[in-house]
Write a protein that binds this DNA or RNA. Structure first.
Length: 704
DNA sequence: TCGTAAAGT
């Protein structure tokens, strides 16, 4: 039998060709023990800290923070910068006189885990004198979890989104002496907002220090952005760059000899080739979505069974990994396996930044990723399979060098690698900006079009956002934030349409129900569909379905959940996402408090659906579509073709008079333009509730 | 007629 994988041919470029880590010296220590204090080590905490690569740069870092307003630290994986730099600053007195050293992370888990690592260091050192408690000297603040003390905390970790929130209460961030933005190269929406705002704050607060911590890529861009020196004399620069080597192992990069027609098949073949020809070590393969992941997993599992039948000694354990996977399934990729088993993790981009799996030696990279992008002309978001950037490719390859030297198999030619863009387009340039613009206005940025963006978004996207905010009553005709509607809308941790709907709910007499609906709409995958029980799941889910649409269906699910004592078993029986529903409860509580603060009366519709639907229209009137005789829908605003998303309870319903007009939360483009979270409404409500938006003539055309 | 990456307030 010919080996099915014999078609995959790879080659390794010569030393002069760009590879990953080729030129790096080989290190013999794993980075994982280096970053977190190991209480079992014979070495003291001090000794362990001194062994980190960043330690050599301690004095230079402190010198630069003294001399420059902004310092860009280029630190590679495993340098120890995230845990050590905040401690160096603390030791050098930057937290004196009640000041705080703030460190932001793009993710909640990172904010807490880095915080705990630093806490362990600090606690181990000060324990003898006064002890240390998490949330005192060292603390963190993330949504729903504030583990910090306004008086005692000297080093505070927080998500970048949280920092932007804090600016609403303290626009000059007066309590901070230094802010370090970690993982800035990821260029998340909130990192970019924070960067723009910090530059503005620095003009008013010369004493505020900013440290931008990034992987090697965008150093110059950050430097030029923050450097306020216009004299041309480098000695007057206000921003300095410093680079810190990392501690990872070399990864050999291989390319295919010719282009790969089908990367799903090629992934399977490459895994088998590694299993057959390479030494021990686990495998990580990158694909773009759940469907591809599951397909590769099932193909490999078939192969693995046949291999064991043919007497292959070493076994394959194939595991999927993506965000939508149930938590218990996700945990399996972290399990340690006996040496007779090779672990193969087939993952989406979640494994590029959000999780790190120990023991990975071989990486397979298909060169693609699914990215959200926003079309400023149509105001429609879509998820598009896009070629990755070179930065992404090197990040993926690096996943194979965490514990020992690794190998990365790229399912594309070196020539195609050269054609990839240097870095991924920042989120700021591919997002709907309505929430961003609202936040900036609330932070006193009057002219958002002239705001200092690190990467300016398309002007048309900003215009779209301004128009929507005006239609919602959050901005006046001069683009100023309205009082109180606009100011209050900005306080909600939700998109402006949801905020408007919530603020109106008191007037409609259904705030209790609307809070639930808004909270439920924030969680993904309320309905769980296990691949082997699709029919049973659908049967259970249908029990919650309501003819009006998804919003009232979600209300139904939540109320049933509460009625059944929030039981996890009940959720399991009805194929509902238990953790998601718990989260909806937490979100609901936060929203309820905000409505209390704004004195929105607590009212219930007492079973009348119409008031709830009208209230939804008051926020989502701009997202309306009418039934077209073709059977699809058309947007009211610009007559674009839309379809009901297959996950909607209205999907597949026979179009009746009742479904003539619908509103929806969002449109996503995949194979078609799909409306998600859809509810049927009366056309007369649109004219009544949004007369400024829908002129009478438009309505006549619709009805005619 | 088929379908949401992953992260956050």
């Amino acid at each position: 039998m010919a080996a099915p994988h014999s078609v995959m041919k790879f080659w390794k470029p010569g030393a002069e060709a760009p590879g990953v880590c080729e030129e790096r010296e080989l290190n013999t220590e794993p980075s994982s023990t280096a970053v977190i204090y190991n209480p079992h080590s014979a070495l003291s905490v001090e000794k362990q800290r001194q062994k980190l690569p960043v330690f050599k740069h301690r004095n230079n870092i402190l010198y630069m923070v003294e001399s420059f307003q902004t310092v860009v630290i280029l630190g590679e994986t495993g340098s120890g910068k995230s845990t050590q730099v905040p401690q160096y600053l603390l030791e050098a007195g930057w937290a004196a006189e009640g000041k705080v050293i703030g460190v932001t992370q793009p993710r909640r888990v990172a904010a807490t885990s880095v915080c705990i690592a630093v806490y362990i260091d600090v606690a181990a050192r000060v324990a003898e004198e006064r002890g240390a408690f998490l949330g005192h000297e060292v603390g963190y603040t993330i949504r729903f979890d504030d583990c910090s003390d306004p008086h005692a905390t000297r080093i505070k970790f927080l998500t970048d989104g949280m920092l932007v929130r804090e600016m609403m209460a303290d626009p000059l961030l007066k309590k901070y002496s230094v802010l370090m933005l970690d993982e800035a190269h990821e260029r998340t929406l909130y990192t970019d907002i924070a960067i723009g705002l910090l530059k503005k704050i620095q003009r008013k607060r010369r004493d505020l220090r900013v440290i931008v911590a990034s992987a090697t890529l965008d150093a110059k861009k950050f430097h030029d952005f923050f450097n306020l020196n216009e004299s041309g004399d480098p000695s007057k620069d206000t921003c300095g760059i410093l680079s810190v080597e990392g501690r990872t192992f070399p990864v050999d990069v291989f390319y295919t000899v010719s282009p790969v027609p089908d990367y799903v098949k090629a992934t399977v073949e490459t895994v088998l080739k590694i299993h057959e020809a390479e030494e021990d070590g686990d495998v990580l393969a990158f694909l773009t979505g759940q469907e591809e992941v599951e397909k590769v997993v099932s193909m490999l599992q078939d192969q693995a069974r046949s291999l064991s039948r043919h007497g292959m000694k070493k076994h394959l354990r194939v595991l999927p990994m993506y965000a939508g996977l149930p938590y218990s399934e996700q945990l399996k990729v972290f399990e340690r396996l006996p040496p007779t088993v090779r672990k193969v993790v087939v993952a989406t981009n979640i494994a590029e930044t959000s999780i790190t799996i120990n023991g990975i030696v071989f990486v397979i990279d298909c060169a693609f990723v699914k990215l959200r992008c926003y079309n400023p002309l149509t105001a429609i978001e879509s998820l598009v399979v896009t070629p990755i950037s070179k930065a992404s490719a090197s990040q993926r390859a690096g996943r194979g060098g965490r514990n020992r030297p690794g190998k990365c198999f790229r399912l594309y030619t070196e020539e195609d690698f050269e054609k990839l863009p240097e870095s991924t387009v920042p989120e700021m340039q591919r997002s709907n900006l309505a929430p961003v613009i609202l936040q900036l206005k609330a932070l006193g940025i009057d002219n958002v079009l002239r705001f200092s963006f690190l990467s300016p978004p398309p002007a048309q996207t900003m215009v779209q956002a301004l128009e929507l905010l005006f239609a919602l009553g959050g901005l006046d005709q001069y683009g100023r934030l309205t009082e109180p509607v606009g100011v209050r809308m900005a306080e909600f941790p939700l998109s402006p349409m949801f905020a408007k709907m919530l603020l109106e709910s008191g007037n409609f007499g259904c705030s209790k129900e609307i809070i639930t609906i808004a909270a439920m709409m924030q969680i993904q995958n309320v309905f769980v569909v296990p691949s082997n029980q699709k029919k049973a799941a659908a049967r259970e889910h249908r029990k919650f379905a309501v003819a009006e649409g998804d919003h009232l269906t979600m209300l139904n699910v939540y109320e049933a959940f509460v009625k059944h004592q929030k039981s996890s078993q009940w959720c399991q029986e009805h194929f509902l996402n238990y953790k998601g529903l718990l989260r909806a409860m937490t979100v609901r509580e936060q929203l309820r408090r905000l409505l209390n603060k704004f004195k929105v009366p607590r009212t219930s519709s007492e079973g009348d659906p119409d008031v709830i639907l009208r209230c939804i229209v008051s926020g989502f009137f701009a997202n309306a579509a009418r039934l077209h005789h073709s059977g699809s829908y058309r947007t009211l605003r610009d007559d674009r073709e839309l379809h009901i998303h297959p996950n909607s309870v209205l999907y597949g319903e026979k179009p009746q008079k009742w479904y003539f007009l619908v509103v929806f939360n969002e449109v996503v483009q995949t194979s078609r333009y799909y409306m998600r979270d859809v509810t049927a409404v009366e056309s007369s409500w649109l004219v009544e509730l949004a007369p400024h938006f829908y002129k009478q003539a438009t309505m006549e055309r619709i009805n005619g």
